[in-house]
Amino acid sequence: MESIFTTEKPQQKHWYQEPWMLLVIGGPAIVIVASFYLAFLAYKGADHVIAPDYYKRGLAINVDIRRDMAARERGLEAGLQIDESTRAVSLRLSGQGSLPPTLALRLSRPAGEGTEEIVLKANLLQAGAGVYRGKLDWPAALDANAAFLWQVNLDGGDWRLTSGWYGPIHAAVTIKPAG
Rank of each mutant, 00 (worst) to 15 (best):
R72G: 00
Q96E: 02
G95M: 01
A46L: 04
A42N: 06
P110G: 05
G45T: 13
A104P: 12
A42W: 10
H48A: 02
V33P: 11
I50E: 13
A88C: 03
R106K: 13
S98A: 04
L105T: 05
R92I: 05
V31A: 06
M69D: 08
I61C: 11
Q96I: 00
L41R: 05
F36W: 07
A70V: 10
R72P: 00
A42T: 12
A104C: 01
H48F: 12
E77Q: 12
G58T: 03
A111P: 01
Q96C: 05
L76V: 00
E77A: 11
V33G: 12
E73T: 07
P52K: 15
L38V: 15
A78L: 05
K56T: 09
M69Q: 11
S85H: 08
Q81C: 05
A42G: 08
G97W: 04
A78K: 00
R67F: 15
L105I: 12
K56I: 00
G114I: 14
Y54H: 09
L38M: 07
G114K: 13
A71M: 06
Q96D: 06
D64K: 13
Y37T: 06
I82K: 10
L91H: 01
L93F: 09
V49I: 02
A42S: 09
A71V: 05
S98N: 01
L80V: 12
R87K: 09
I65F: 11
A88Y: 08
R66P: 04
T102H: 04
R72S: 01
V63K: 05
S108F: 10
D83R: 11
Y43L: 12
L41W: 02
R87A: 05
R57S: 06
Q96T: 03
V89T: 12
D53I: 04
Q81W: 08
R67N: 14
D83K: 13
V49M: 05
G97T: 13
V89Q: 02
G95A: 06
T86D: 15
E73K: 10
E73V: 01
V49N: 01
L59D: 06
A60D: 09
S94E: 04
V63T: 10
Y55N: 14
Q81T: 14
D47E: 15
A71K: 09
E84Q: 09
A39K: 00
S98C: 09
T102P: 11
Y37A: 02
S98Q: 08
S98V: 04
L93A: 07
G114F: 13
G97A: 15
A46R: 14
P100W: 11
A34Y: 04
G58M: 03
I65M: 13
R66W: 10
V31Y: 07
S35T: 10
